[in-house]
Design a protein around this nucleic acid. Structure first.
Lengths: 267, 267
DNA sequence: ACACATGTTTAGTATTAGTAAACTTCAATT
DNA sequence: AATTGAAGTTTACTAATACTAAACATGTGT
């Protein structure tokens, strides 16, 4: 079950994220775009302002994002810049070596999140996916690479919500997906064969923490015709990507002694 | 009027801001601290997670702050680091010259917000006020310095909500406050004579934008006994603070030609 | 293997959030 | 200067929904 008034409020914040303008957004704009009645929207926004998450410009009456959000953002974990910084050089090496788009993804609960991405340097570019956007776990190599190494309970929890059909090749059947995940786990890498975007082929390798739990993934996308035309090309992409994921996993090398009762290191 | 379920949700986010722990917060902790029933809190948190503003760790079930907040924070204006950077050297000069605590404050709607602060270098320190915390408009020199240069409508809007009695010297009567504000506007600076914290005396000067609208303030706090003991000490503090506010106002010097229909520059 | 602690789900009721309409404020136009 | 209109705000009322309590699951430590 979900609380509708909270849903509406957070959808409004979403709207601010994607449509923010320098002077802020007016009540009318919010209502027009989200289909709210103005009095209801006003009550809602007044409450949000009262708590300081938004605020209203005294002169223009337009709504702006409050600094409380900034304060809160400092407490977000996936915003762990250390990790992204550490990973960057390895991601870059894949990008330099292949010229193709490279993604570093992490996750928060059941959400797959793009942490860093490097665009293809080739003329025919593949540029789906944006920073911090949340992606499909089931239809991407990055998602499946992580998912494959989770336990069944978590896999099902994630697949319950994420099974949108993006292309005719998207696997939407849960049993087929679970079978695929087990193959991925055995092979050590995941592929996305036009499952998310037509004409795009993608390879993904998992990044593990010190307990051998999957925490992120590195993936490399390429136009499919290149893969078909030249068999060796895929091997090259795989080797670069695998290497990067392996190196990035070293970020999680145990730093302090493991306390008893904690999981053992198993890499 | 305010929407209660939104209020509760945002109070919960407030709780996350002030009580966040490395592994996240449990449902029980939230309920215990905020007095919620666990089923209600669960529904609420599930909704917030579904929208990605929080997320739940799959293993520990604890709640963490999502990266969507990070995304949103990049759109907050008062987080305009350029301004704070520009202001810093001037604030620093006041701190170096007086050795006392110096604050740079801005505001969002009816909220006074500390942007930067420098601690006193003296043994007897005055350290109320924290970064990004919202402060009392009516009981601080920083607040009154800004408030004095607003129009009556906005002054009343702000004073309607902020008239808490912090000490026996806090001015809580609206008429008295408005009279005080008009004196501040004439004098060009505001004082806080133990109105926010006992034993603390404070002087504040407004920072104006290119339209001569108050947008921020610089204030300097000192233990009151120093002011009483040495009349010249206050003059020194005032002169440093005034100079800083004057210099910081230059940040808003018009950069491009003023379009017709817009307010004229009047400084 | 058991018990306890924590989180999750459910069905029913009381509260509250949304509606519509009137009001305010301000600015543009006559 | 008076008038219209466009935005936001407030109100009183009612339909919808969020909260409660209690049972259920899950997993951890003993």
């Amino acid at each position: 079950m979900s609380v509708k008034s909270i849903e509406k409020t957070l959808s409004t914040l979403d709207f601010f994220i994607s449509n923010m303008k320098p002077g802020g957004l007016s009540l009318k704009e919010v209502c027009a775009s989200l289909g709210f009645k103005k009095s209801a929207a006003h009550h809602m926004l007044a409450t949000v302002c009262q708590k300081g998450y938004l605020y209203q410009d005294l002169k223009t009456k337009k709504y702006l994002i409050g600094s409380k959000i900034k304060k809160m953002s400092k407490l977000a974990i996936l915003d762990d810049s250390d990790f992204s910084d550490f990973a960057f050089e390895h991601i870059k090496r894949v990008n330099d070596g292949t010229g193709e788009a490279v993604h570093l993804a992490g996750f928060e609960g059941t959400r797959l999140i793009t942490l860093t991405m490097l665009q293809s340097t080739h003329p025919v570019r593949v540029d789906h996916g944006f920073l911090n956007k949340d992606h499909a776990f089931h239809a991407t190599a990055s998602g499946k690479a992580i998912l494959a190494h989770m336990n069944l309970a978590n896999q099902e929890k994630i697949l319950k919500k994420n099974r949108v059909e993006f292309t005719e090749f998207t696997i939407t059947d849960k049993v087929t997906l679970l079978k695929e995940l087990s193959a991925i786990k055995k092979n050590g890498y995941a592929i996305d064969d036009e499952e998310f975007q037509e004409g795009v082929y993608c390879v993904g390798y998992p990044v593990f923490n010190e307990y051998h739990e999957p925490v992120a993934s590195v993936s490399c996308s390429s136009p499919k015709y290149k893969i078909v035309r030249d068999k060796k090309y895929l091997d090259k992409i795989k080797s670069f990507t695998q290497q990067a994921a392996f190196e990035i996993s070293k970020y999680y090398k145990p730093k302090k002694t493991i306390k008893k009762g904690e999981r053992k290191y198993a890499a």
